[in-house]
Design a protein around this nucleic acid. Structure first.
Lengths: 124, 124
DNA sequence: CTGAATCCCCCAAGATACTG
DNA sequence: CAGTATCTTGGGGGATTCAG
C-alpha cells in the first residue's frame, strides 16, 4: 500500500499534487474514466492492459479514499461495480489532457513507438 | 537508476508523459528552475530540502538526458554548474502550474499543513 | 563547490492461486 | 464478476564516505 497522502506532510503544493496523482497507473486510470464517464471493474482491467487485479484494486481504493473517484456497488448476481470520477477528480482532467498532448507531440517528434492507441482511447 | 524513458515502450501518451515527469523530485525541480530561471547545484540542494546529493545528481542527469533541463559547467575554481529549463522543459510549466493551483486549493480545503512555502517558492 | 562511489533497505509492484 | 490472500522481487531511494 502506498503511504496515504494524509500521513506524510507535503513540502509544498507541487509536492502534494504530484504525490496525489503519482504511481504507475493513476494517470491512465483517471484518463480512461474521464473518456468513458463510467467503467466497470472488468472494463478497467481490460483498458489498463498491463495491470494485475491486485494493483487495479489497490489503485482504485487509493483514488477513492483520496476523493478522486466514486465507487458504486450494485448488489446483484453477478456482482457489478461501477467507477466514475468525482467532481474533484474531474478538475484534474485538463491537466492530464494537456500532459497527454505534450506526450503525443514528444513521441511523434522523437519517433517513439507505443503499444496502445495514440489517443489513449480504448475500444470497449 | 530509474529505467530510461527510451528503454520501456509506453502504452500510450498518458503513460509516456507520466513516466517522463514521474519520480519523487522531478516536479519540484522543474518548478523551482522555472521560478528562478537559473539555479546552481547548491541552490537546488537547499531548495529541495529533503533531497540527498545522490538523488539530486541522479534526478538532474535524468532530466538532462531527457532534454528537459540544460546543464552548464563553468571551468572555474571553485567549480560552478548552472541548471536551467530547456524549451521543451518550459512547455511543461503550465501543467505544473495548474497542478500546483489544484494542490493548493485542495490543501486549503482539507486544511492540510505543509512544511515549506504555500507557493512553493524558495527564498534564496 | 559539485559531485562520485558504496552499501543497504524498504516497499511498490509482480506472480500466482483462491473466493463470495 | 469483482475482487483477496500470499509470497516474492526489483529498484527507487537513503545514509555515508570520498574526490577533483
Amino acid at each position: 500500500m502506498q503511504a496515504k497522502i494524509q500521513d506524510v506532510q507535503p513540502i509544498c503544493a507541487v509536492d502534494y499534487a504530484f504525490r496525489r496523482i503519482g504511481g504507475k497507473y493513476k494517470g491512465r486510470l483517471l484518463w480512461y474514466l474521464h473518456n468513458h464517464q463510467v467503467l466497470r471493474y472488468g472494463e478497467l482491467r481490460r483498458s489498463i492492459v498491463d495491470i494485475t487485479p491486485k494493483m487495479l484494486t489497490q489503485t482504485l481504493r487509493e483514488l477513492e479514499e483520496d476523493g478522486l473517484i466514486h465507487r458504486e456497488v450494485y448488489h446483484e448476481v453477478p456482482p457489478k461495480v461501477e467507477y466514475r470520477l468525482t467532481t474533484v477528480g474531474q478538475e484534474l482532467v485538463p491537466f492530464i489532457e494537456h500532459l497527454r498532448d505534450w506526450g503525443m507531440q514528444q513521441m511523434r517528434k522523437e519517433n517513439i513507438p507505443m503499444i496502445g492507441d495514440t489517443n489513449c482511447i480504448t475500444n470497449d
